[in-house]
């Protein structure tokens, strides 16, 4: 097990270097630098442009800029935003909880509904429920997030008026961020009704972002469970006179979970991709909206730092999932 973890960790280093390089290069491939974009249509005198570029070090060759960037990252300095002049890390930390809250809720939504649905479909294989679940999840899986989000907003927010259209909280409340998670902070505060408002704001984004993972988890659970239910040890468990609940819920699920956990972990990466779209549809004040804004402004430090932080976190989550997989599967554990 220790060796397994160590091998896994040793892979983190090259991945991290790759992320550094990519986050630095990609934004520079987009035409227009921060200064040109800031002055836009109005244009700027060539001398002034050159002067500003020199101030920001943008006149240096790329490799010099990269080495400079590396040096700062090594000292834990991600630089300051070109547009707000705030440290990138501070801005990130202020916005990140909102993204995490949304992502966690979406994942919990996917697991809470996907896991039991998958198990039930496997146990009732070939039933109406099974067929219905499989076709719905196929639809869910291929649902374009943007379209799906707008559809839900039109129905539940505009037509029925059940949920707010955007944001995290109704404007009449003010919640001092302590944990950064609105659901928790609003519960801790004395503002009556704030929690309910936060909850109502979360529902649609959660559903939109959670739909694809839900479909993936349900399908994976079903197929994994179907395989497990044919195993000899399930027959043994039944031969012991255990209840179906124990046979399926303990002996079956414990084994079926192993591949499902991996799939859930792999979803975290695509979840962040989905979060970018979801946050922009619902004007959710998270990291994703912040990054999109930074692209428009060609805010190099924000983009470099933000992408680096997000990608590193995805990497860490995947590492954690691998370790968890090792712990779930005694055959890997040494």
């Amino acid at each position: 097990m220790l060796r397994f973890i160590l091998t896994r960790i040793s892979l983190v280093v090259p991945t991290f270097i790759g992320i550094l390089l990519l986050s630095f290069m990609l934004i520079r491939l987009v035409p227009g630098d921060p200064i040109e974009v800031r002055f836009g249509e109005r244009g700027i005198a060539p001398e002034r442009l050159a002067q500003l570029r020199a101030e920001m070090g943008l006149d240096q060759p790329l490799y010099v800029q990269f080495l400079d960037y590396l040096g700062h990252v090594a000292r834990g300095d991600l630089g300051v935003s070109i547009s707000t002049k705030n440290p990138v890390l501070t801005e990130f930390l202020a916005l990140f909880p909102a993204t995490v809250e949304l992502g966690l809720c979406a994942m919990i939504f996917a697991i809470v509904f996907g896991l039991p649905a998958g198990v039930f479909a496997a146990v009732k294989r070939g039933s109406v429920f099974d067929h219905a679940l499989m076709s719905t999840s196929l639809t869910g899986f291929s649902m374009p997030i943007f379209w799906w989000g707008l559809l839900l907003i039109l129905l539940f927010s505009v037509q029925l008026g059940w949920t707010p259209v955007s944001g995290r909280l109704a404007a009449l409340y003010y919640i001092e961020p302590t944990t950064g998670f609105m659901l928790i902070d609003s519960l801790l505060s004395d503002e009556k009704g704030a929690f309910l408002s936060a909850l109502r704001h979360l529902i649609l984004p959660t559903v939109v972002l959670g739909t694809i993972p839900l479909a993936v988890v349900a399908r994976m659970t079903r197929s994994s469970m179907l395989e497990v239910l044919n195993e000899d040890y399930i027959r043994t468990a039944r031969a012991k006179g255990l209840s179906s609940f124990r046979v399926i819920g303990i002996h079956g699920l414990r084994n079926a979970m192993i591949p499902v956990v991996t799939v859930i972990g792999l979803q975290v990466g695509s979840l962040l991709g989905g979060a970018i779209l979801t946050e922009s549809i619902f004007a959710w004040p998270g990291v994703a909206s912040w990054l999109i804004e930074a692209i428009n402004r060609r805010d190099y430090p924000v983009l470099q730092g933000g992408v680096l932080l997000v990608a590193s976190l995805v990497m860490l989550v995947n590492l954690a999932v691998d370790v968890l997989y090792g712990m779930l599967n005694p055959r890997i554990r040494r």
Binding site: E231, D232, Y233, T236, H251, R254, I258, L328, P330
Partner: peptide, 13 residues
């Protein structure tokens, strides 16, 4: 008891 002892026991417990 069954023919294949190793697959008849649950690998996770």
């Amino acid at each position: 008891i069954f023919q294949e002892p190793t697959t008849s026991l649950n690998p996770c417990f």
